[in-house]
Amino acid sequence: MFVHEGHDAPSPGTVVDRVEFDVERGKIGEFAVATYAGDQIHRDVDVATAAGFDDVLATATHVVVAGHHRNQREFVAALGLAIERVVVGSVEWEYARPLVAGDHLIGTRRILDNTVRQGKRGGSMRLVTLQTDWLDSSDQLAVTQREVLIERGL
């Protein structure tokens, strides 16, 4: 187990936070602009329904909007991270189904791994792998998000 600043770090399986939000048309449009997603399926309900969706289709990275709903201070404290030394190593999404405007998502984020490695240029780094399972209002898995946070300079 990794020990950080005198505290035991949470172990794999530990829930670090839960968050919920509604997938909104306006926010989908903002993400489409920000990610250069030019397909009108992200902006026009008629185009989306003609393609077989109930409403406009969310962009592939839409669940990152959850960052605006999370208590970042509690999350950082729960992991025992020094936020000024943290970078995001990777993020991946696995969709069980497409997200559309009107979906309500509840995400539970857990620790998958929490390790320390020796860096190639000296010093060590802590790698925390997290997984968020996003369930819809029917308690069905919609998206699985995995991310690796790297705390540099231990």
Rank of each mutant, 00 (worst) to 15 (best):
H62M: 07
A142G: 04
L135F: 09
V15P: 02
E94V: 15
A37E: 14
D103C: 14
F75H: 10
T129E: 05
Y36E: 11
V148L: 11
A50P: 01
S11A: 06
V64G: 03
T35D: 07
D103H: 14
L81Y: 11
E74T: 03
V45C: 01
R85C: 12
V56N: 06
N114D: 06
R18D: 03
A66F: 09
T108F: 03
S90H: 13
H42Y: 06
A58S: 06
R43F: 04
L105Q: 04
H104A: 10
A51P: 05
P12C: 12
Q131T: 02
R97P: 10
V128P: 02
L127M: 11
T14Q: 05
R25N: 05
I41F: 09
D46E: 13
G102S: 07
V64H: 11
A37K: 14
R146W: 12
P10E: 04
A51Q: 13
L99W: 09
G122W: 09
L112G: 00
A101K: 08
S138R: 13
V19N: 00
A66Y: 10
V15L: 13
I28A: 02
G89M: 14
Y36C: 09
A60V: 15
P10K: 10
I41C: 09
R85D: 12
L99E: 08
G67E: 06
G29S: 01
